[in-house]
Amino acid sequence: MSNSTIQPALEVKNLTRRFGDRTILDHLSFKLMPGETLVIMGGSGCGKSTLLRHLVGLMQPDEGEISILGKEITQMNESQLNLVRTKIGLLFQSGALFNSLTVGENIAMPILESSYVNPSIADLVVKMKLELVGLTGFEHLKPAQLSGGMKKRVGLARALATDPQILFCDEPTAGLDPVMTAVVDTLISDLTKKLGITAVVVTHDMTSAFRIASQMIMLFQGRIIAQGTPDEIRRNPDPILKQFVNGEADGPIPLRLSKDDYLKRLLQA
C-alpha cells in the first residue's frame, strides 16, 4: 500500500486562536502519520499547552481545522467528540488524577465508563498498566499519598488504559529523575514502535525530545518556526531554534533585557 492511501492520524490546517488582541496560535499547519511521534517544543508561554488542548477538543479554534483519525473535530458536538475521545489518551502536566479515587480506580475509570466491562477484567487491565509504568502494587493508594513523579506515571497508565490510538502527553518527564525520565521515554518509544500508537508530546526537555521524536516542531510567538525530523532540526540554522535546542541564555529569544531597556522599564511610570 502506498503512503498516499494511508490517512494521517492527526492533521492540523491553519489553526488560529486569539485571546482578545493576542494571537496565541497563528495559522499552524502540520500532519502526523500513524506510528510517528511528534514533539512540540517551545519556550514557556508560546502556546504549546493551548495547542494540545485544541488537539483534544478542550478548546475550539477561531479558524482552521483539526482532524483526528480522519475525523474533523472542530465542528463536532459533544457526543460526536466523545466518540473520538475514546480513541485518544491524554497525560496532563500535573497528572490530573481524581483525588477522591484510589490509583486503581483512577486507571479503571476510563475502561468502566467507556462501555460495560466486567470489574474483574478492569482490575486485570489496571494491574497490567501499573506494571507498564513500574508501579505494581500501588492500586490501593490515594493520589495524595504519591510523589509528583508517581502521580505522573499513574496519569500515563490512565491515559493508556483504553489502548488509545493516539497518546497526547503534556510534559511527560517534567519532575521525574533522570532514570525515570529514560523509563518514560523508552515506554513512549516502545508504544509507538512496537504497538503502532501515534504520540504527540509537548516538552522542553531536549534530551527526551531527540530521544523519542520522529517529527519535531518548534513554536515561537504562536508560529511554527521549524519543522522536521530530529536530524533536520539539529541542522536547521535558525538562531531562535539553535538558542532553544542548545539551552543558551543569550540569543534572539528576548529573556534578558539590555542595560538600556532595563533602565527604561524601571523608570516607566
Binding site: L58, N82, S94, F98, M109
Partner: peptide
C-alpha cells in the same frame, strides 16, 4: 478544586460527560 486541578478536563478527554458523572 477539580476544575482548577484539571480533573474536569481529564473527564472530558476520557469521553465522560462531567454533567453525568
Amino acid at each position: 478544586t477539580m476544575k482548577v486541578s484539571e480533573e474536569i478536563d481529564a473527564l472530558e478527554v476520557m469521553g465522560v460527560d462531567p454533567v453525568r458523572y
